[in-house]
Amino acid sequence: MLSIDRSIIDAIVAHARRDHPDEACGVVAGPAGSDTPTRHIPMDNAARSMTFYEFDSMEQLRVWREMDDRDEEPVVIYHSHTATEAYPSRTDVSFAGEPGAHYLLVSTREPDTEEIRSFRIVDGVVTEEPVEIVDAAVDPHAVQSYMFGQSPATVDYECSDR
């Protein structure tokens, strides 16, 4: 399960919309070992392509060193697919080199709705996981009743059936 703050998801979606129809990419860093994404770092897509993304190697070195200095790790690595579903392509799987990261995909193929899905990719094996979007601004004790499957401060996205 990926648990991530709504403000970060909103920033990722805004980045993906801004760069559409090119693919957008970036990282959300978090304290090492916490599995909690806290610091959104939009990255340049050096490929500037509608069907391919690639971190600029020099920007990546700077960002990875900065994370090291701050005792952080890449908790989330995200990119957008702009004409297809939010599911890892064979290319995505071939390149996936951070076994501890959540690979978040956003599809911007629909103009009004985003498809947001998260995956673990380890040794070439793709495993989808639920995404829990946490609304830090809402006081969870302020609401006393809610529908099954929802809580006042979170929205759970189950894995799509495939």
């Binding site: 490929a47 069907t51 064979r90 390149f95 996936a96 080199g97």
Partner: peptide
């Protein structure tokens, strides 16, 4: 560092 890359395109072309 692991190169971070991917995308919707087929691998050979990418």
């Amino acid at each position: 560092l692991p190169a971070v890359a991917g995308g919707a395109f087929g691998f050979a072309a990418a």
